[in-house]
Design a protein around this nucleic acid. Structure first.
Lengths: 236, 236
DNA sequence: CGGCTCGTTGACTCTCCTCAAGTGAGGTGG
DNA sequence: CCACCTCACTTGAGGAGAGTCAACGAGCCG
């Protein structure tokens, strides 16, 4: 929500007071499993979290790679049973937000509620872009799109970040995110290296030509709405 | 929102009063193009609408097939420029809802605002399911998932509907929806017919074994949240 | 030291795409 | 009323991209 740069300090305080205490989750632990009853959402304070779904044949699709600042588990608030499994990729710190706390937000600060709505819509756009990527582009384009998108999001967290970043993902997890097998992810990685578009060193990746990668990805860059004058006014 | 069965008559009236007059759009006309500034969303009163995105190489992905009762164009309210093109598939009737009307909803009825939020989350789940379908399953599974999902949604509009329904989609449009070429959609249609899972006659489709199709699709059925006691109370 | 997971590479297979051509229904204009 | 055109559907043949199976090496942790 802070992406829209309009919550007031008073509102951020309300939001913070609604969230529960910080919980720690060890690497590889499941935070919530698909099929569980959704009783809260979570603010990710620190660490990486995977949101994944399992298909009937046992294959897995990763629907979102969550970074610090993300709200986890929110799609499932509309459902009887959670759709996604949340797994800690690294040691994680998070704060639960009960459904009733979420509900009271709509009463207490309509402006924050509207921002919550906007970020849900933004997530829809991200999913739509991924649908395009997976549905209509080659493995190379998909990997490029994934890397650029991840880089953009990391950069939003650390604006001073350069073209190089660390990540905890295995190639299998990347494959499950962009709809490829681990073996093919590996080959495509090599292809991008040979084209001098990226450099890899373990779990560190450097994007050598972000513009070219973005072009290759095929999906257009998105700019968030600037004019939010139609929203309810923030509290002060 | 009415899917959650909780808006009160008073609230529905508020909602109706916020929407603009009914507009008619002829078949194949564009309602809004990607790149336009999003100035409103639309309630689809009657007809079918496609929401699509165009990639750099000119290929198209259909992001959503909209049916009467749907809200159109809402993902783009978070953006500076609309992400999706809205095209009338049939003669269409719709009512625009300006952004300021949407904003006032958050002030006037927190309960409706929360329902709006929930239906955005539900759309996210639908996109996540489609991501799984396109990313991890075969052409046959994808087509089965598409047909079952479409049938479910039509059934929600007309609960008395049987296993047979009419639709205005070409095979190319279906392909653009599930990430296949028109030629391959045709072959997979034939496959499903030969397996006695469906029957086709022009633009009419009968699902001969919905349970089998659902199993084949690989994605799990979703149940909407029943307990919405955490939402703000409705107006009366 | 041993057992794991992860990354890498090769060989082969198969699903789906591409290109091409033919059919049929519907619409239009002479 | 018919010739013509267009668009959607259909089917075939061939090719390419991604999957599958398998093996091996490297790093990490107990």
């Amino acid at each position: 929500m802070t992406e829209f740069r309009s919550p007031s300090p008073a509102e951020l305080e309300i939001f913070a007071s609604l969230a529960g205490p910080v919980q720690s989750v060890a690497r590889n632990r499941t935070i919530r499993r698909e099929g569980d009853r959704p009783q809260s959402v979570y603010m990710l304070v620190d660490g990486w979290v995977l949101s994944s779904m399992t298909l009937a044949d046992g294959s897995r699709q990763i629907v979102k790679v969550h970074l610090p600042g993300d709200m986890l588990g929110s799609p499932s608030v509309a459902l009887d049973r959670a759709a996604e499994t949340l797994t800690a990729l690294t040691p994680v710190k998070l704060r639960p937000i009960s459904l009733s706390a979420l509900g009271s937000l709509f009463m207490r600060t309509p402006h924050m509620a509207a921002l919550l709505f906007l970020s849900a819509q933004q997530e829809r756009v991200i999913l739509m872009d991924r649908l395009c990527s997976i549905g209509r582009t080659s493995a190379e384009c998909r990997l490029a799109a994934f890397l650029v998108h991840l880089h953009d999001r990391l950069k939003r967290i650390r604006p001073d970040m350069g073209p190089r970043f660390e990540h905890p993902l295995t190639q299998e997890q990347i494959g499950d995110t962009i709809g490829l097998t681990a073996v093919h992810v590996n080959r495509v990685f090599r292809g991008l290296e040979e084209k001098k578009l990226i450099l890899r060193d373990g779990h560190s990746i450097e994007l050598l030509d972000i513009a070219a990668l973005r072009r290759l990805s095929g999906v257009s860059a998105r700019t968030l709405a600037q004019d939010l004058s139609w929203l309810p006014k923030p509290l002060h």
